[in-house]
């Protein structure tokens, strides 16, 4: 189910006259987060000598981002998702298209990270602690990429690939703040999970601060 809403917010027109490309704007507010937080028992039926018992997903957070006409990144952005204590760290990573993400293994056992998501299908094969070069993947198509480990079926992570450099992840209370935004008209999107993205249009004038609670 995809929830979309198109609402236009016109910021105070009587703001100080702004020159083109002038002072930056800010959007901040709070996202109403879903209450979902799952825990699961690790399957270790055939590994008597095992570790890990119950794993929990991190508390829900949302991603707030602006879509518009932004200049491309000057350098190839890099990011990393570690495998530590049989978990992805972070469990949610947001990157701009064209970002190369490294997947270092910090556990003393093999991991085998893969994704079948349409936005990026890959399989890194089995690799060990401190593998050199660090296995890495370029994410060049916007979309949701669900990460899994072939060996540890409870491991799950998400990379949200966005075609914009203007994004932020809320805190666990849903608070967010996007700053340093150029004036203009944008689509403001709020990603809650792989099935739910909220959308609205905002107009930003220079040197303004917009308070916007979502949805």
């Amino acid at each position: 189910m995809k929830i979309t809403g198109h609402h236009t917010l016109l910021l105070a027109a009587g703001l100080l006259a702004a020159t083109a490309g002038g002072w930056a704007a800010t959007i901040e507010g709070r996202v109403k987060l879903p209450k979902r937080e799952t825990t699961t028992v690790v399957n270790k039926r055939y590994e008597i000598v095992s570790r890990g018992g119950v794993v929990s997903t991190n508390p829900p957070v949302a991603v707030v981002y602006l879509e518009g006409d932004f200049p491309p990144a000057k350098a190839e952005p890099m990011a990393r998702v570690e495998q530590k204590d049989l978990m992805f760290v972070p469990q949610l990573l947001v990157v701009q298209t064209g970002t190369k993400v490294e997947f270092p293994n910090l556990d003393d056992t093999f991991h085998n990270i893969f994704s079948y998501s349409p936005a990026k299908r890959f399989d890194l094969g089995r690799y060990r602690t401190n593998e050199k070069p660090v296995p890495a993947v370029m994410f060049d198509t916007p979309g949701v990429v669900v990460l899994r480990c072939e060996i540890h079926e409870h491991m799950r992570g998400v990379i949200l690939v966005l075609a914009t450099p203007r994004f932020t992840v809320t805190d666990t209370e849903g608070r967010y703040r996007l700053e340093g935004l150029p004036a203009g008209t944008y689509r403001l999107k709020t990603w809650l999970d792989s099935q739910t993205t909220l959308e609205r249009t905002v107009q930003l004038a220079a040197d303004t601060s917009l308070r916007l609670d979502l949805p």
Partner: peptide, 16 residues
């Protein structure tokens, strides 16, 4: 059908 259960930090039960 499989059942995996974690009992405290030291116990684990499974069934198939």
């Amino acid at each position: 059908l499989y059942l995996d259960a974690q009992v405290g930090t030291r116990g684990y039960f499974f069934a198939q």
